[in-house]
């Protein structure tokens, strides 16, 4: 239903990527990516392992330096618009044995708006507690983060991004290793964000749930294969182009 509410022509462009090329070594892992993401969509980035999905997000966010290309957020360079953007990294990217609590990690989401030196106070703590509540992790607020399950750690990361109160959310595999109930809880939060007019970009692996969860999709495999509304472009043709001829077998597994 809400797919119809966002006609492409009417919406503003939230994220615009121009001619982005990224290489770690010699061979580029992303080639000449052009991408326009309209405001207010819930978009999946799909592609096989090693397609460059994480790399794309990291280069958009300035974590990696591309060889060429530019990124703009609402028509301004990304550097000026950082405060509008929140990031949920892949869970495995940090050391979960770090001596800190769940609440503390979520509070880190407020550091950006605090800026240098200033410490978080009551207001920030309240925001963090609310975010924990939203992801259903309030009872675990005092836990050392290594004593959380994988799905719980994932929800902590989500809460940390929610605290940033951004307009655009980039999430790298937020459903990795979570159970069916948590997956639904998370997707409901994402849909709520969309309802509030936010743009949510999610790296997603489960092709079967794409039509159900998302209204926008980008196919990626080193190059951009296609991008657009799920109902128009989520088809065999694009799946085959992205995953190769055998994608049907992998779906059936």
């Amino acid at each position: 239903m809400d797919k119809k509410k966002i006609p492409v022509s009417a919406g503003r462009i939230a994220v615009k990527v121009d001619d982005l090329t990224v290489a770690y070594n010699y061979k580029p892992v992303l080639w000449d990516i052009d991408l326009e993401i309209p405001e207010g969509v819930l978009m999946a980035i799909v592609g096989p392992n090693g397609a460059g999905k994480s790399t794309l997000i990291k280069s958009i966010l300035g974590i990696l330096k591309p060889i060429a290309g530019s990124v703009s957020i609402y028509n301004q360079p990304y550097e000026k618009q950082r405060s509008l953007v929140a990031y949920v990294p892949q869970k495995g990217s940090v050391d979960w044995d770090f001596p800190t609590t769940a609440l503390d990690v979520v509070m880190m989401g407020t550091y950006g708006s605090l800026g240098w030196i200033k410490r978080p106070g009551q207001k920030e703590k309240k925001a963090a507690l609310e975010a924990l509540e939203k992801v259903g992790m309030l009872p675990f607020k005092g836990r050392q983060i290594s004593q959380l399950s994988g799905g719980q750690q994932q929800r902590i990361f989500l809460a940390r991004a929610l605290v940033q109160n951004a307009s655009i959310y980039f999430m790298d595999e937020p459903f990795q290793g979570v159970d069916a109930t948590t997956e639904i809880a998370i997707i409901n939060i994402l849909k709520e964000l969309r309802k509030a007019g936010k743009t949510v970009i999610v790296v997603h692996h489960d092709l079967q749930t794409v039509p159900e969860y998302f209204d926008w999709v980008t196919f990626l495999n080193v190059k951009k294969i296609a991008t657009g509304p799920v109902k128009d472009i989520f088809n065999d043709d694009n799946l085959t182009k992205t995953y190769g001829i055998n994608y049907k077998v992998s779906i059936q597994e």
Binding site: F98, G112, I117, R119
Partner: peptide, 22 residues
């Protein structure tokens, strides 16, 4: 003491720290 918050977040998650503009 001055940069406590910055040290802590960098130690835990450097990439994320960068996206916050530090």
């Amino acid at each position: 003491l001055l940069f406590w918050k910055e040290f802590k977040i960098l130690l835990f998650d450097a990439d994320y720290t960068k996206t916050l503009g530090f």
